[in-house]
Amino acid sequence: MKEQNFLDNLVGVFGHPAAENPGVVIQEAAFKDMGLERWRFLTIDVDPGKLEDAIAGLKAMKMKGINCTLPHKIEVLKYLDEISPSAKLIGAVNTIVNDNGRLFGDSTDGKGFMESLRNAQISPEGKRVVILGAGGAGRAIGVELAMAGAQHITIVNIPQDEKMAESLVDILNTKTKTKAEYIPWTGDYKVPAEAHILINATPIGLYPNVDDKPNVDYETVRPDLFVQDVIPNPAFTPFLDEAKKRGARWNTGMGMLINQAAINIKMWTGKDPDKEVMTKAFKEVIG
């Protein structure tokens, strides 16, 4: 007799807001293509201050794992049993694996970002980089760029979160070979003439605020600058439009999203998904 098993294997994302997160589109497309019929990806809105309850629910429902996005990537650290060495250095986690109630956390944001950068044929080695934002994504990207040989990294962050930016700069200066500095973000940021790469690692421009763009003096964006956004929805943002208008090379957040999602799926299922299938599904929904 054929085995009957109707138990769903649950994964998903904790975020706030969460409705605009397109992860379910690419994850479930991958599951279907891989023949994982009873794997489900849930998009779950978890209010700040309710993360502990959400983690307890994850364990109670025996979910296989979860992604954490804004604003939970740093707060979630206190609820984990084990953290990867790179996530410890970064100080943030975006992917959790539930191994029979024992929670392991890792950061795949930076890894997905670096693969996207390589696909755009951009090497950070010896380059001067400006990162807008020092949250979970900015921290992961900063550490990965430093480990890849970036010469200098400037962290631009709002003064209200000065401690977060300074802690990232301290990590980069003491734990890696790169040189880093923090610049308080007041008014329109002027991109230094010596910068090679400009990265928006903030949620500015994310759906539904699709007309928003970071406070940058866009007249300082040059044609020889490479501009990268981490926003996946919409794929083409006003930030990138400003770069395009000025002749700069640019890259959307879609590649980073697909790459890190593929890593997540491998961590949860032990199998490699087809990223072309995931990209096709994303483009059909987001454009």
Score class of each variant (00 low, 15 high):
Gln4Phe: 13
Leu7Ile: 13
Asp8Cys: 02
Phe14Gln: 06
His16Trp: 13
Pro17Asp: 10
Glu20Gln: 15
Val25Met: 10
Ile26Ser: 08
Phe31Trp: 03
Leu36Thr: 08
Glu37Ile: 06
Trp39Thr: 07
Thr43Gln: 14
Ile44Arg: 11
Asp47Leu: 12
Asp47Ile: 05
Glu52Gly: 15
Glu52Cys: 11
Gly57Asn: 09
Ala60Ser: 15
Met61Asp: 11
Gly65Ser: 09
Ile66Gln: 12
Asn67Lys: 09
Leu70Ser: 10
Leu70Tyr: 11
Pro71Ile: 11
His72Met: 11
Lys73Arg: 15
Val76His: 10
Tyr79Trp: 12
Leu80Met: 14
Glu82Gly: 06
Ile83Asn: 09
Ser84Arg: 12
Ala87Val: 12
Val93Trp: 11
Asp106Phe: 06
Ser107Gln: 13
Gly110Cys: 07
Lys111Ala: 14
Phe113Ser: 02
Met114Ala: 02
Glu115Met: 11
Gln121Leu: 14
Glu125Leu: 12
Glu125Pro: 04
Val129Lys: 01
Val129Gly: 03
Leu132Phe: 02
Ala140Asn: 06
Ile141Leu: 00
Gly142Cys: 04
Glu144Tyr: 00
Glu144Trp: 01
Glu144Thr: 03
Leu145Trp: 00
Leu145Asn: 00
Met147Cys: 00
Ala148Asp: 07
Gln151Pro: 06
Val156His: 01
Thr174Cys: 01
Thr174Trp: 00
Lys177Asn: 15
Ala180Pro: 06
Trp185Glu: 01
Thr186Phe: 03
Gly187Trp: 07
Ala195Met: 12
His196Cys: 02
Ile199Lys: 00
Ile204Trp: 07
Ile204Tyr: 07
Gly205His: 08
Tyr207Ile: 08
Asp211Arg: 13
Asn215Tyr: 07
Asp224Ile: 13
Leu225Pro: 02
Phe226Ile: 06
Gln228Ile: 02
Asp229Glu: 12
Pro232Ala: 07
Ala235His: 04
Phe239His: 02
Leu240Lys: 04
Asp241Phe: 04
Lys245Ile: 07
Arg246Trp: 07
Gly253Pro: 06
Gly255Ala: 03
Ile263Cys: 04
Ile265Gly: 00
Lys271Asn: 01
Asp272Gly: 02
Pro273Gln: 02
Glu276Phe: 08
Ala281Thr: 04
Ile286Val: 15
